[in-house]
Computed example of a mutant assay.
Amino acid sequence: MLQAVILFCLGVMSVALILTFVRLIKGPDLPDRILAMDTLYINGIAVIMLFGLYLDSNLFFEAALLIAVMGFVSTVAIAKHLMRGNIIE
C-alpha cells in the first residue's frame, strides 16, 4: 500500500516539477523566475526523497540535503544580487 502511495506522490510531484519549469521559462519578470527556481529545487528535493523512500536507500537523503543547502545559498545570492547589484560586500 505504501509503495502505491509513494508512486502516486512521485507522479504528482513530477507534474509540479513540469509546471514549475514552465513558470521558470514563461515568468513575466525576474523575481517570478527566481521564485520559480526556488520552488523547482524544493520540488526536486521532494522527488529525490520520495524516490529514496521507494528504493529504501539512505543515499538519496544525503543528496537531498546537499541540494537543499546549495539551493538556499543560490537563492540568497541571487536575491542579494537583485537588491544591491553585488553578492560579496
Rank of each mutant, 00 (worst) to 15 (best):
M1L: 11
L2Q: 14
L2F: 14
Q3G: 07
A4N: 14
A4R: 14
V5A: 15
V5I: 15
V5K: 13
I6L: 15
L7R: 15
L10D: 01
L10A: 10
G11D: 04
G11P: 04
V12D: 05
V12L: 14
M13Q: 06
M13L: 11
S14L: 14
V15P: 10
A16D: 00
L17T: 03
I18Y: 14
L19S: 09
V22N: 09
G27P: 07
G27I: 01
P28W: 06
L30C: 01
R33S: 02
R33E: 02
I34C: 03
T39L: 13
Y41D: 05
Y41L: 09
Y41N: 08
I42M: 11
G44L: 07
A46F: 10
M49H: 01
L53D: 01
D56Y: 12
S57F: 05
N58P: 05
N58S: 12
L59P: 00
F61V: 07
E62L: 13
E62K: 15
A63F: 10
A63T: 02
A64W: 01
A64C: 08
L65C: 00
L66M: 13
A68Y: 00
M70T: 15
M70A: 15
F72L: 09
F72Y: 10
S74W: 03
S74Q: 10
A77E: 03
I78T: 10
I78W: 02
I78D: 01
I78Y: 03
H81E: 00
L82V: 05
N86K: 10
I87L: 11
I88K: 12
I88W: 13
I88T: 11
I88E: 13
E89F: 10
